[in-house]
């Protein structure tokens, strides 16, 4: 029973979701929309679980003064600061003119967003520039014919994107575009077809109850 019931539920709901794509009847759509809404509610409720998880993982380690406990204080502290700044209603401290102090459009939240979150976020993304340089130096090597072909195509595309490409040869952007439109698109589509069919096979394995590892089989 412990295994059969989940398998039956999976089969019924999975088949319904697939059927929605083929059956335009509004009744089917309403049922799937309702199920998707439930899914959204569960996902939102999981944020509470996530919060509990953060506390459970970090607080004991701070209490025991485990290695690098300071970072955990920063994590809990910054999460709390953001939550407090956003959750206090805007009406708590609202001056006559200008924006309120709290609330998600309040001064505190906006300040944290603009001057802490935004730069930190952009910094992480910007690390890519450095990592690409080191990865390119280390891994991009003409070991064999395929790697050499890929390398040459990559260099043409990179040179074609920047103005120097046009300066070297006016036809460079056109060659770059040709590589992107034909060679690149052909490869992408082949992978996309494979991914789509792989996804269908995985979906079928779960819907038909062939894959049961998650149920302790």
């Amino acid at each position: 029973m412990k295994q059969t019931l989940p398998l039956v539920i999976t089969f019924l709901i999975g088949t319904l979701m697939v059927a929605e794509f083929f059956v335009p009847h509004a009744g089917v759509h309403e049922l799937t929309a309702l199920l998707q809404e439930w899914g959204l509610v569960i996902a939102a409720a999981a944020f509470v679980l996530g919060g509990i998880n953060v506390v459970q993982v970090n607080i004991p380690k701070i209490a025991r003064r485990e290695r690098d406990w300071g970072y955990r204080v920063v994590l809990i502290g910054s999460a709390l600061a953001m939550v407090i700044a956003g959750f206090i209603p805007a009406s708590v401290f609202k001056p006559e003119t200008g924006a309120p102090l709290f609330g998600k459009e309040g001064i505190v939240f906006t300040f944290l967003f603009d001057y802490v979150f935004a730069p930190a976020n952009a910094t992480m993304f910007a690390l890519l520039a450095f990592f690409i340089a080191s990865a390119a130096f280390r891994a991009f090597r003409a070991r064999n014919l395929e790697a050499t072909l890929m390398l040459s195509a990559a260099i043409v595309v990179m040179v074609g994107v920047i103005p120097v490409g046009e300066w070297i040869w006016s036809g460079m952007p056109a060659v770059k575009q040709w590589i992107l439109d034909y060679a690149n698109n052909a490869g992408r589509r082949a992978i996309m077809v494979g991914v789509a069919l792989g996804a269908v096979a995985t979906g079928l394995r779960i819907i038909l109850g062939l894959e049961r590892s998650h149920l302790g089989d």
Binding site: F137, R138, F140, L151, M158, V159, I162, V164
Partner: peptide, 13 residues
Amino acid sequence: GQIFVILAIVLGN
């Protein structure tokens, strides 16, 4: 930046 990446690839090779 791009020129440097290209140079890094060339140097690596």
